[in-house]
């Protein structure tokens, strides 16, 4: 474990709002910290006292299973007290604003707020209104930084590096916060990112932030080291602009036949939950190239690192709070 007492402080942020604002060094520091936390999950007693006595509140204004559980477990493994804010039973139903809700919760003595919200920029808005730490667990179509970090972590783990890799992100890029965070993180660490999908789902404007954009999935398969298949939102199909699942699968689905035309060691990723047989064929999802479950496992370590680092920065010292 690196410690802030003997090395220069690499992390001074009490909020994690997105990856766009982080430096390469900061990202690497989170990944390195996560590396040291990974081992905790393998212990028989899966707990360290790093956040003992601290309170983490999960504020989820959108449905989520895995991200919510992952943050909850991460906080518990750091010995924090975790409370849940369930939007359906909350005062927002009675017209309270996000900031008022948050300030009331903060008044009860909260150290870290983990926010999932359908509106882009909600985490920034919250961070400007409260004194505690804010960790963005997904804001609208804008960012999902811990997903971006766990994807980077998984790539680094499997490939030994991120720099110089060719990474494709395939699917509904326009509506995806995962794509945006992955893109930013990958770029910072020196990967070359290609966004793949129909023009209705992959706006050319992504070229202005340094990504290559193409509709020709088959044309770029062979050069990819990593292919990240995004979830297709069937329920949003007509407004997001492709005719049918059947047609989507033909042009943008990852299956055994396409996998055969990839590099033998290509890494197939998916942020979950998978539509089996749509963006990802079942045998590929479960095959040796897939890192889907590994991503979930790594998510825990990454979120422990994020909670720990933000709290540490907020407290201004790391002396007593090593894992």
């Amino acid at each position: 474990m690196t410690t802030a007492t003997t090395e220069p402080v690499l992390w001074t942020r009490k909020h994690l709002l997105g990856l766009a604002e982080l430096t390469r060094e900061e990202i690497v520091h989170v990944l390195d910290t996560a590396e040291s936390f990974k081992e905790v999950s393998t212990r028989s007693v899966k707990k360290v006292p790093a956040l003992r006595g601290r309170v983490v509140v999960n504020m989820f204004f959108e449905e989520s299973t895995r991200t919510r559980m992952s943050f909850e477990l991460a906080a518990q493994r750091l010995s924090a007290d975790v409370i849940d804010f369930a939007e359906k039973m909350s005062s927002t139903q009675k017209g309270e604003t996000l900031v008022d809700t948050a300030r009331n919760i903060e008044a009860m003595g909260v150290d870290i707020m983990v926010l999932r919200h359908p509106a882009a920029g909600a985490a920034h808005h919250l961070a400007g209104a409260v004194k505690c730490c804010v960790v963005n667990a997904g804001d609208g179509q804008h960012a999902h930084p811990t997903q971006g970090l766990l994807d980077l972590f998984t790539i680094r783990e499997r490939k030994g590096r991120v720099e110089g890799l060719n990474v494709a992100i395939v699917g509904d890029i326009a509506h995806s916060r995962v794509a945006r965070s992955d893109l930013r993180g990958l770029q910072k660490l020196g990967a070359k990112v290609t966004l793949v999908g129909p023009p209705t789902l992959v706006p050319k404007t992504f070229e202005t932030i340094g990504a290559r954009v193409t509709s020709d999935f088959d044309g770029v398969l062979a050069e990819m080291d990593v292919i990240n298949m995004l979830r297709i939102q069937k329920e949003r199909m007509t407004e997001s602009g492709f005719p049918s699942v059947r047609e989507y699968v033909q042009f943008f689905g990852m299956n055994r036949e396409r996998l055969r035309r990839c590099k033998p060691d290509v890494l197939i990723m998916h942020p979950g939950p998978v539509n089996r047989g749509i963006e990802l064929a079942a045998d590929v999802a479960d095959g040796p190239n897939s890192s889907i479950l590994r991503q979930v496992t790594n998510g825990l370590a990454v979120r422990m690192a994020v909670l720990f680092l933000c709290q540490q920065a907020a407290a201004g010292t790391a002396r007593d709070e090593e894992p």
Binding site: T200, T238, G241, F242, P243, S244, R246, E247, Q250, F251
Partner: peptide, 17 residues
């Protein structure tokens, strides 16, 4: 569009093929 109704995209890619 499906049924030439001007609402949902028809399966243009499959028709190209």
């Amino acid at each position: 569009t499906v049924g030439r109704q001007g609402k949902e995209l028809a399966e243009i890619g499959l028709m190209v093929r």
